[in-house]
């Protein structure tokens, strides 16, 4: 008798594999399926070795048996373009979709800011914004919960090696989705996101700069405390989330300089951008799983 909720991961690439390794340690979820499209994918081979059922036929390869296999939560770690279709199909089979692509068809979820809200609404699709969004929106929210933020801007710098083909092909989706998350979840009146890819060797750790413009003079003490409190919340699932400098106050500008070191599960530690995404996705799934196990939520196709 299993006491864990069964989950499937769609997309056996870097993100999907890192997520799998984290999920294997979870007290609340148990990965049972890995879905890919390339039979030669090393990610699928690895998942098979770890005892998961796999298919190279895309989501369609899992659909016929996913209900009897007990899959109640799926993660999509593919791309924004195929996400809507994947989501529709697994929702029909009664599974919640946690979207790690920037497709953003469901409500945004940034765990320390609004995870409880997302779970409370029992949405069948939640979106994890973007890696840059996961790393920076908590900081925007840390300022905006103290006082009104008219403008929030983030600059995410990631190493070239950690920016996969999906991110590169869809870089506009990154900037758009992140900017939207800064507004909707971060609480800034208007948002702007910038991503920089740096090819330096050895690869640099993910860096994130957050600039907020406050409406009134910033309350330095309250903002500083709020920022430190929020960092502690993020560190619960990403221990390498570190304040490098700031908050710096310059007139109505509040600037926060962060570094994100990953756990190094599958990807190297410098790829904090990928790590924070998988860790946030897993944390979201665990919260859903707790609700499911407690009998408060039965995922179902509407």
């Amino acid at each position: 008798m299993s006491t864990k909720v069964k989950v499937a991961i769609i997309g056996p690439g870097n993100i999907g594999t890192d997520l799998l390794m984290k999920a294997m340690r979870s007290e609340f979820v148990e990965p049972v399926w890995m879905v890919g499209v390339d039979p030669d994918s090393p990610g699928l081979a690895r998942a098979t070795e770890m005892g998961l059922k796999t298919t190279a036929e895309g989501v369609d390869g899992m659909l016929p048996t996913m209900r009897e296999d007990g899959v109640q939560i799926c993660f999509d770690a593919t791309s924004a373009y195929v996400h809507a279709e994947n989501s529709r199909k697994v929702n029909e089979q009664g599974a919640v979709m946690i979207d790690l692509t920037p497709a953003a068809i469901g409500p945004f979820c940034v765990p320390p800011v609004n995870l409880t809200d997302a779970v409370a609404t029992k949405a069948m699709n939640v979106n994890m914004v973007t890696c840059g969004g996961q790393a920076t929106i908590p900081m925007v929210a840390a300022v905006s919960r103290v006082q009104e933020v008219s403008y929030g801007e983030i600059i995410a710098t990631v190493s070239s090696k950690s920016a996969g083909p999906g991110t590169r092909k869809n870089i506009d989706e990154f900037t758009r989705t992140t900017a939207s998350g800064i507004e909707k979840v971060g609480g800034a009146k208007s948002g702007k996101a910038i991503i920089i890819i740096n090819p330096a060797e050895p690869p640099l750790m993910m860096r994130d700069t957050v600039h907020c413009l406050t409406v009134d003079e910033p309350d330095k003490e309250a903002i500083t405390k709020s920022v430190h409190d929020m960092i502690a919340q993020v560190q619960k699932y990403v221990p390498g989330y570190t304040l490098k400098n700031g908050p710096v106050f310059d007139g109505k500008r509040v600037s926060i300089y962060m570094e994100v070191e990953g756990l190094g599960d599958f990807l190297p530690k410098y790829a904090g951008n990928l790590d924070i995404m998988t860790a946030a996705g897993l944390r979201t799934a665990e919260m859903y799983a707790e609700e499911i196990l407690a009998g408060n939520f039965v995922p179902n196709a509407a």
Partner: peptide, 16 residues
């Protein structure tokens, strides 16, 4: 540090 175009944010960070 082999910074690239657009990394203006790293200047104040480094200065600090």
């Amino acid at each position: 540090r082999r910074t690239v175009g657009g990394q203006e944010d790293m200047i104040e960070d480094l200065a600090l």
